[in-house]
Design a protein around this nucleic acid. Structure first.
Lengths: 175, 175
DNA sequence: CTCCAGCTTGACGTGAACGTCAATAAAGCT
DNA sequence: AGCTTTATTGACGTTCACGTCAAGCTGGAG
């Protein structure tokens, strides 16, 4: 009854199997199922046999989770909070609360204020992280300068007359 | 008996006990001992009784490890690599190799080139991380804008005339 | 038809990074 | 001198984020 067969010739809105998502995101299928188990991402559709079908939006969400985890060092629990306070998610809930005939909009305001607060905190953390990384970066640039200087010195010691070609390892470049 | 005790009146170059370092860095003593176990940081001195004495330099190193781990999401194994390619460490090794009467400076150059390469890779990673976080940040700012807008809307629905305090029984729906 | 690659749901195993408890000793204040 | 606080070294426990089988289904190539 379900000839919802993926015709290859048909132009469909992009559906991916779990293995494909894994390759695109450089994660493993195990990780994707684990995240689903935690309620972080679920494919928007399961084929009649239970096979996971990921949409483009699902893929985006997976990438976002990965970034939050790897880029910002968030635990998956923290990731969940961030996702829960994302405007799309919150506005959806606000809207659905509105649709379900909530007599008072107070609850909606509460949800919004909560999300706004969380968002501000996240922004603050991002700014803090940014400035710390910048500081670290400039330290590393200074470090690079010292290393180069020492290499120049050393090269002069090796051959004070001219720049001899002797090391295949490493590249020669000057900025 | 007064064994070799540091005179209190003497201006000492700052020595910290493990608990003090823990508080200053917001880590635990267990973590500090663990990192020491892994060879990442050792206090520059142990009192005759084996009590750890951390110098200011040790504290700096601890902070650096913490930043690498928490800020950039490095594992402790990765942290070790980064620390090993730091210019101070590398230049020290180069110098000691020089002192030990190494006839050829080629090994020294190898060390330097290695460190330079690692440093460049780290810089690239830092830049990548920075731009990704910036992108994420601007997304979150847009998100804040949408949330704020929605709250304005909602406030208007709650009381279109004036900023009245919240009314639990007064259900007003107006446009 | 067989075979294979890729999927499914469990269930158990694992490494990293600590937490926690125990027994003991020394530091330091009153 | 006594008492409290902080330290020491083991040794074992714990949490997170998966890895790794196991056993079975399924669509498609040969």
């Amino acid at each position: 009854m379900t000839p919802t067969r993926p015709s290859v010739t048909e132009r469909r809105p992009l559906v991916l199997r779990i293995g494909e998502v894994a390759k695109l995101t450089e994660l493993t299928t195990r990780t994707l199922r684990y995240w689903e188990e935690l309620g972080l991402v679920s494919p928007s559709d399961y084929g009649g046999n239970g096979e996971r079908r990921y949409s483009a939006a699902d893929l985006t969400r997976v990438r976002r989770i990965r970034d939050l985890q790897q880029l910002l060092g968030f635990s998956l629990a923290e990731v969940r909070v961030v996702l829960d306070t994302e405007d799309v998610s919150v506005l959806d809930r606000v809207k659905s609360e509105f649709q379900s005939g909530d007599p008072s909009p107070l609850r909606q305001r509460e949800l919004l204020d909560e999300a706004i607060l969380a968002n501000d905190q996240l922004l603050a953390r991002l700014d803090d992280t940014l400035s710390r990384i910048r500081a670290f970066r400039s330290e590393r640039e200074a470090s690079a300068g010292r290393l180069w200087a020492r290499r120049e010195e050393l090269d002069a010691e090796i051959d004070p007359t001219l720049g001899a070609e002797l090391q295949p390892s490493g590249k020669r470049e000057e900025r």
